[in-house]
Every structure is written in structure tokens, then in C-alpha cells.
Design a protein around this nucleic acid. Structure first.
Lengths: 331, 331
DNA sequence: TTGTAGGCGTTATCAT
DNA sequence: ATGATAACGCCTACAA
């Protein structure tokens, strides 16, 4: 079923059919109606491969993330989708599951002209390639800063700083952080949050103790080890700052299995303000990110880049405001 | 940067370049190397629009779901992705957010030749259209049965039946179900589970009480009303069967805010076996679905359909086994 | 207002 | 082993 079939059946040229589809006002009423009827009768839909090839654009953007199960992403994606739709772009999602190969495959859609632009959540998988690609294609990173690439996120340094200060303001002195020591001085969201944490301690004259950096993971089995680290300390800390709500929840669960209550015995703070942080018992004190707005802002910038090919080189960092959500897991 | 540029720079015809890409064994070693070098130097990637248009296939499948935040989907998608990759297909995700318009737009990718096949989680959005489309395009539904369309899921009737029987076996007599009364006799997963629940009651000579069907929702605000319904009953039931873990969790949370403990005062059972059902306090007794296997199986069938155009008409129902996960929210 | 024809980038057939 | 060329389906000057 192609435009030719429609043209033949309607006794017009393919050009007229095309016009009915793209410039209906340029074709006389009766012709238009005749063509539309045939289109309907034949149940014709234009082949976008042909159209896109001809127009050299797809009006699609790809969103690349490691895993859809990350609750946090959902609202960001909602912002992306709405902004994109407003501008007649379709959003496709692609997951990497942490694999560099999958990441490159997804990014290759840009070179392959399958999409016009990319929004990437996981730029850390291959920062070199990303840096190279952003010279030629419209790309915006989200949440995870990549040097040389435009990024929209919260100010993770400040968020880490504020969160730690909040704990200190409640009288906590011995504050553990669920972060990998290897992230120190790295330009990742975890690295920045860790810096914020360290500076907050320093500013409050709290001595730095490397043992309080107890490690990070997405896997529950690893969380068990992290809780081991926590319990092996000479003295149980006053609080743990986890860099994700899921991690905070897994830590609280594991502590509870070992007979330690939150917040009675120890406070636990999360990050992201996912739905579960509200639903958990105890509800989780956490750092909220303006997820929807992040998605919208990132898409706006991407749309600009796609419209104006000169803008590829820009690498602005856009920070949106975070906010501490005071709940029950910290007292 | 097109195949022509490569051909020119390498002093060969476009045909040779194409062969280097698709049938490298058909081109002499030195020529091949020369071409590969140019491809590398120019950083050339084939334009898939051209290729796909020529081949009339995209080797892409689309997965249509209402929302990525549904934890349950993640593992299903993992199964889909792995099976697809095995067969050189790329998976793209698309969300509908419950909108029929978005759904139709996503499904239109089939007609538009942007994808070769579709896996749909939310066939209920427009069963008529789906029924029509599956005559012409390879489509497999997942988890949600649509009459006339091939579906892979658990046997929701049996799952509802088994879950209810499990509660009865523990001595529960007054069992509420968090389901919309409107789902009764509907061919949806909720409808089937409700039928299973009703039949289990009947088989155990437990009287049917419409007031125990207390409503269903994804929104926490609605859950509050559902808990109102629960507490307005003459006598607090022994148990609540929620048709999703998230709902079970929200009910437990809301009950706890009103001073009612689970499982001490009332048992709550979930459905899906998401990570949170394990992490919650109390951990949630739930019905596990073989998510990964569902994804793999659905993709296998879709691949068959895509390979053999005669198979479109089939509308088999493939049921995979569910399993009750006994945890702490039911005693 | 409508039709003709060229070309978007690729692959595949048919020559050579 | 390689090259010339005709499609794939569509859009858009340009011509009529």
C-alpha cells in the first residue's frame, strides 16, 4: 500500500496525494475529498522511511538510560514527552543496562539518522565518545554531568552539602555516607555529592573519617556488605546519607533485619524523592529533584540545538533547584 | 557523509562500498581494506533510512506500555531485549500514559514502517484497533489478554484463585479485594483475578459480599478512599488482596497512618513480586509472575510472526506459571 | 490546480 | 571481483 496505489485508485498523480497529506490547502476541495476517501478505503499510511529519507529528518528523539526500573526517571521522561509532543517530536526510549556496547548502539542512531537528537541519562558509560559525538549531533545530558556536553541536573555538590548540613543541624556528628570511595573527586553525581558532604563536615569542624564512606551499590546483596561496614565501625554512626532512595530503603530493611530501628537507633537519608520514599515505613527523608522540570528543560535545549545546527558546540550546565523533604527516617 | 563520498574517496563504486559493509567476503582483500580505511577516516555510518527503505525492514520492534515507572515491566523488558538482541533486533520503548491517542500513535509505527513488530502491554486502550491491526502486522500482547490477539501472560484467573485459596488456607474468612466492581466479568487481568477470587470463595462456601470489593487505583489519594471503604465495613476484614504490590504497599501505609498494623490487625497480599515487595517492612506476601520468561516468550512468538507473514492470524494464549511468595504481610 | 520527474541513501541485479 | 543502474516510497521544484 503506497502513495502510488492511492494515486492510481484516485486517478490523480502521486504529487496530488502527497499534497493532500502535507499541504491540503493547495488542492481543490473535490480532489482532496476524493483522495481522502481512497486513503481511507485503502487504509493507507505513508511510509515514514520514504518521507524521512526525503526530508532528511525523523522528528524523533531518543532517550538513553540504563534501566527503566529507576523510578526516578519516570517523571523526567514525562517532562520530556510532553515538551517533545508540543513540538511534534516522538520520544523513543532505549536502555543500556550498564553496557557500553548497548550505549554506543543507542547513540549510533544519531549517526544512522534514525533519530534527530538524543537525551542521555548515562553519559558516564563513554564520556569520550559522547564528547566526540556532541560536536556533530544534538545531545543533552541529564542528571549526570559530562565535561564538554550540555547537561541539565540539580547541583549535586550543593545538594550533598545541604543534605549533610541538614543532618548536622539536627545534631548528628558521626555521619556515614553510602558512596564508593572511588568516586572521590570524580565528576559524577556521586562524586559531587560526596564533595558536598565532605565540605559540609569540614565547615562544621567535623573530623573526616574514611571509614564512614561505606560504599554504594544497586544490588541488595551488596547492600548487606555495606551494612556490615556500618556495623563494624567502633560505634554506630548517628546517620547514614544514601545517594538514592532505593539504597536508603535497602539499608533500612537490612538494618531492621538485624534488629536496628530507623530512626530510633540511626537516621537514614535518601536522595531522589521517589514515590516509595513517601510510602515506606518509616517514610524517607530525602532530597527532591525537580524531575519533571529537568525533563522539560533538557528537551527545550535539545530542541534549540536541533533547530540551530550552530549550537552543537555549546556545553552549558543548567542547574535546577533541589529541596530537602523532611520525613520520618531522620530525627 | 554518504556512501557516495566513501566511494569517491576510495576510488571504487558505491556497490563495492555496500559490499564491504554487507558481504565483505565478496570483495578482494586489498580493496576491502582500502574501503574500510576510508570509512574509518570519514567516520562514515550508513544511513538506516536508506537501507531500511531499500530492504523494507527495520529490524526494530516497539514495546508499548503505559508508564515506565511500573517496576514490574522492567524485568519483562529485559527478557524482551535479550531475546531481540540475539536475533539482531533493536528494541524501542514507547509510553502511552493511559492515552488512547498516544497508543494509536505508537501502534502507527507499524503502518509507517518504522518498526517491524510490536509488543504491547496495554492492549486494553483500544482493543478494536488492536484486533484490526493484528491481521496485518506482527503483534503480541503481554500480561493483558486481548480477544483475538496472541497474548503471553500468567493465568490471571488461576492466580486470583490460588491467592485467595492461600488466604483461606490460613483461616481468613472475610477477605476484601482491592478491585473495581466494574471489572467483574471483564476480560482484563483484574477481571480474571476477581473471578478467581470469587470462585475460590464459592468453593469454600464463603458468602459473597459486594462490599468487600473495595476499589482499585494507582493514585495514593484514591487509595485513601479505598481504605475508607475498608474501615467503614461493620467489621474489619481478615485480609485484603491487592492486585498490585504498589497498591498493597499504599494500603499498608495508609492503614499504618491510621494506627492499624499489618499483619497483626489485618493481612495484606500483593501481586507482581516487585523488588519493593521484598524490601518493604513488613515484606509483602505476593504472587510472582515469571517476568523475564514472559518477555522472552512473547518475543519468541513475535519473531516467528515477523519471519512468517502467514502467522498473523493466530491468537494463541500462552500462560506461564505464577507462584505465591510467602512473606510477612500475611500471617 | 495538477502532473512530471529527480533525488534522498541504500542495496541488489545484471553486466563486465 | 567490480561497476552501472534500477528500484525502495516519498516530497517538491518546475512545468503545464
Amino acid at each position: 500500500m503506497t502513495i502510488k496505489d492511492v494515486a492510481k485508485k484516485a486517478n490523480v498523480s502521486v504529487a496530488t496525494v502527497s499534497r493532500v497529506l502535507n499541504n491540503p490547502e493547495c488542492v481543490k476541495q473535490p480532489t482532496r475529498e476524493k483522495v481522502l476517501k481512497v486513503i481511507h478505503d485503502l487504509n493507507y499510511s505513508p511510509n515514514l522511511l520514504g518521507r524521512n529519507l526525503r526530508r532528511l529528518e525523523t522528528r524523533k528523539i531518543i532517550v538513553v538510560m540504563d534501566n527503566i526500573s529507576n523510578q526516578f526517571y519516570s517523571k523526567v521522561v514525562k517532562g520530556i514527552e510532553e515538551k517533545a509532543k508540543e513540538n511534534n517530536f516522538t520520544v523513543m526510549l532505549s536502555t543500556t543496562r550498564g553496557s557500553k556496547e548497548n550505549f554506543l548502539e543507542a547513540m549510533n542512531m544519531l549517526a544512522n539518522k534514525v533519530v534527530d537528537g538524543a537525551l542521555v541519562f548515562c553519559g558516564d558509560l563513554d564520556t569520550g565518545k559522547l564528547n566526540e559525538m556532541q560536536k556533530y549531533y544534538p545531545i543533552v545530558c541529564i542528571c549526570e554531568i559530562v565535561e564538554g556536553v550540555t547537561t541539565v541536573s540539580v547541583d549535586d555538590y550543593k545538594a550533598g552539602f545541604d543534605a549533610t548540613n541538614y543532618l548536622i543541624s539536627l545534631g548528628k556528628k558521626k555521619i556515614a555516607i553510602a558512596c564508593d570511595i572511588g568516586q572521590k573527586d570524580k565528576h559524577t553525581s556521586s562524586g559531587f555529592r560526596l564533595s558536598g558532604y565532605l565540605d559540609a563536615l569540614k565547615q562544621n569542624n567535623i573530623e573526616y573519617d574514611e571509614n564512614l564512606i561505606i560504599g554504594q551499590s544497586e544490588e541488595y546483596d551488596e547492600i548487606k556488605k555495606i551494612v556490615d561496614n556500618l556495623l563494624n565501625l567502633e560505634e554506630l554512626p548517628d546517620a547514614v546519607f544514601a545517594l538514592a532512595d532505593t539504597v536508603a530503603i535497602e539499608i533500612i530493611k537490612e538494618l531492621s533485619l538485624r534488629g536496628i530501628s530507623v530512626p530510633e537507633d540511626i537516621s537514614v537519608m535518601g536522595f531522589d524523592n521517589t514515590l516509595m520514599s513517601e510510602m515506606y515505613i518509616p517514610s524517607i527523608t530525602t532530597v527532591a529533584q525537580p524531575q519533571y522540570d529537568i525533563g522539560v528543560k533538557a528537551t527545550e535545549i535539545l530542541l534549540e540545538k536541533m533547530a540551530d545546527k550552530e549550537k552543537y558546540v555549546g556545553c552549558e550546565k543548567v542547574f535546577l533547584e533541589h529541596k530537602i523533604m523532611k520525613r520520618d527516617s531522620v530525627k
